[in-house]
């Protein structure tokens, strides 16, 4: 009996010690880790837009972050958008599900605090009045070049084969896909994990909205010339050739990964849903912005 008690006691102490060490390290490193993730995200976004260290984005290019929330308006549900305004302040625009304008509330929020989820949500709650239920939905980044919209960046998550797949999608103002980058996933190595390979994610490049709307996954093998164009860096194909092959396959469906049909289909459906929903919501938001004369920088 005494033995059991000592064992229990020592194992508990060992676990507590281990927990203490891990917890301390977590607290000490969490901020730096989040910062790294953020920096990486920024880098990926710029590379999706075609900029890199060698070819940096010009000063006229600006990114404006729009945060979408779900707001409880009495019994009904409404969409809320936190929009940056031209004078540097923020405004929270609520739109009901039918697309009608409900309210516009100014939000007091420092520009550098907008990226922090807690501070942002708290500021919106203050502006709306405390008792309204509020839930963060997603984020869109509107990219402008000299005041004109050049692209939208949509960070998003959708269900994969095992857990969620996190991705960033870049689309141009006509809702054609500019590029797709997989940020996080836990698919099977060698099978579903191939979704982050060039030859899969580049298949989405250049697909127009009409094609994306009815995009499917096909199980025919990837044609040789298309593979070369998708892996242009590896095969050393010229830009002009790549563009002509991409054009040829632009309206085709997505070729599934061997042995990972579910993962391929998850990404395809995820991208499809993201683009479709975004196009629908943006049309409503743009109409409301024009009707209410809200001066956004994009």
């Amino acid at each position: 009996m005494k033995d059991i008690l000592t064992i229990i006691f020592r194992l508990t102490v060992a676990c507590l010690l281990a927990g203490l060490v891990m917890g301390t390290v977590f607290i000490a490193t969490d901020k730096a880790k989040k910062h790294n993730v953020h920096v990486n995200e920024q880098k990926v976004m710029l590379s999706l837009l075609g900029y890199s260290a060698k070819n940096p984005a010009p000063a006229s290019v600006a990114m404006h972050e729009v945060y979408r929330y779900l707001v409880g308006e009495g019994e009904a549900l409404a969409m809320g958008y936190l929009l940056p305004l031209r004078d540097g302040s923020f405004s929270f625009v609520t739109i009901d599900l039918a697309g009608g304008f409900v309210a516009q509330n100014p939000v007091t929020l420092a520009a550098e605090k907008a990226g922090e989820a807690e501070a942002r949500t708290a500021a919106i709650a203050v502006a709306l009045g405390a008792d309204k239920p509020l839930r963060y939905a997603d984020q869109t980044i509107v990219v402008t070049d000299g005041g004109k919209r050049t692209a939208y960046l949509l960070p998003g998550k959708f269900p994969g084969f095992k857990t969620f797949i996190g991705a960033i999608l870049a689309i141009d103002p006509d809702f054609s896909i500019l590029g797709l980058e997989i940020m996080e996933h836990e698919e099977d190595p060698g099978l579903g994990a191939e979704i982050d390979q060039e030859y899969f994610k580049n298949q989405f490049k250049g697909k127009p909205l009409e094609t994306v709307k009815k995009l499917e996954v096909v199980k025919t093998p990837l044609p040789e010339e298309y593979l070369k164009a998708l892996e242009a860096e590896k095969s050393g194909l010229g830009a002009a050739e790549v563009a002509s092959i991409q054009k040829q396959y632009q309206d085709k469906d997505i070729y599934a990964l061997t042995g990972a049909t579910i993962s391929s289909r998850s990404v395809t459906n995820g991208v499809k849903a993201m683009v479709k929903k975004f196009a629908y919501r943006l049309a409503i938001l743009d109409r409301v912005l024009a009707e209410q004369h809200i001066a956004t920088p994009f």
Binding site: R10, L11, A14, A18, V21, M22, T29, D30, K33, N36
Partner: peptide, 24 residues
Amino acid sequence: RIRIPTYTLTIATWVTVIDMVLAA
């Protein structure tokens, strides 16, 4: 009697710590 769980715990702790420090 509990040396094996203790070893596993130690290794797991170090793996987690190194993982977090590298990531940061």
